[in-house]
Amino acid sequence: MQTIERGSAGSARVAIVGGIHGDEPAGERIVSRLADELDESASGSGGVRLIIANERALAAETRYTDADLNRVFPGDPDSDEYERALAPRLAAELEGMDAVLALHTSHSAPPPFAIYSDLTESVRRTVTGMPVEYVVDSSRLRSTTLDSVVPHTVSIEVGRQGSEEAVEFGYEACLAFLRAHGALDDEPPTFTEKTVVAGDEEVPKGGGVPHVYFANFEEIPRGAVFAEDDVYTHRVDEDGVVPILASEHGYEEIFGIYGRVQGILEPPADGTTARGETADELATDESGGEETAE
């Protein structure tokens, strides 16, 4: 694990983590670029911590060496498995941070999206301050990921694995994250409302030739088949279901995750939307009601 310290324009302590999975080199590239470009001694009292997490897996160009790092938190410092022992070291590097952003790519199709497990005000600021339309509430899924264990952590899927587009989008998303928390003051942050999708259940894969028929966040009509192979035929029997991380070949055991749209997440109270409205103005619709995902 490599840790790089940079200065901040504000008082918040924030961190960006890349390279949790060794077959997702975009995160390492983004962190290295930020390390080259950010000021080492900015004027604020806070700080920016940049972390390249799983150097051994990155060197081997494999997702993990012994165990999936993003499935073993909080880990075990005495474990013989490299990633299981690495997990508590990484968590310790993030202790006390006001905001954390973890970078990922996937085999799934665009659009990029954010993921959180616990909606703190810091998390609200992170996700509404980044250039994504969708945010996934993963609190009903695994409890062994970085964002489910380390407070104020958001994960972001920046694009397709191995693509230059993912690197460029991820870099811009990191700048937006830093602006949202006051660590970068080159331009004002932009906060916008997001569509919240609750991740409900993983969709298992069996064997044979896989087929996926719907894209990420595309509503699956009642009665339609989302995905199938020689073992499973996954037919949706209710309205409002959308796929998350839908992929035919990206994952060995799942086609993706079923999600359900929960509502709209509003920007922080001191935020300003892309239209120039304050969050309070945006939260109230024409009828005087309020629609907020909590």
Rank of each mutant, 00 (worst) to 15 (best):
G159K: 08
L119M: 09
G207A: 13
E187A: 01
G46N: 08
S287A: 15
F255D: 04
T65Y: 01
I244L: 08
V123S: 06
P110M: 12
A283D: 13
T273F: 12
E252Y: 08
P151Q: 09
D200V: 12
R84D: 00
Y213S: 13
G263T: 02
E228L: 01
Y251S: 15
V236S: 01
T192F: 15
V231I: 08
P268F: 09
P267Y: 12
G129N: 13
M97I: 07
F214I: 10
G288P: 12
L50D: 09
R63K: 04
E253L: 14
F169G: 06
V149S: 07
V17T: 14
M130T: 15
D66R: 14
V72E: 03
L141A: 11
A198T: 04
I257S: 07
S155A: 10
Y82W: 00
S108T: 00
T278D: 11
F214E: 02
D270I: 05
L90S: 03
A92H: 11
A227K: 05
R275I: 08
H104V: 02
P77Y: 01
F226N: 00
G288T: 10
V231E: 04
E252D: 07
I51T: 13
P88R: 11
P151K: 11
G289P: 02
G199V: 08
D118C: 13
V123P: 04
V17H: 10
S108L: 00
L184D: 07
H104P: 00
E218I: 03
H211C: 09
A180P: 05
F177H: 09
V203E: 01
E248S: 05
S43Y: 07
D80P: 07
V136S: 01
I220Q: 04
A109L: 11
S43M: 12
Y232R: 02
T233V: 03
D68E: 03
V17G: 08
E219G: 09
P210C: 09
H21N: 14
T272M: 06
I20P: 09
R125T: 06
Q262Y: 06
A42I: 07
S287M: 15
H152S: 13
V167P: 05
S8T: 13
A224V: 08
L86F: 12
V158S: 09
N54G: 14
G206V: 11
G263Y: 09
D66L: 03
S108R: 00
G263P: 09
D237C: 04
L38E: 04
P110K: 08
A293N: 11
V100R: 14
G47I: 08
E291W: 03
I30G: 01
A246N: 02
D237T: 13
D98Y: 00
T62Y: 04
V132I: 14
V150D: 04
Y64M: 02
T284C: 09
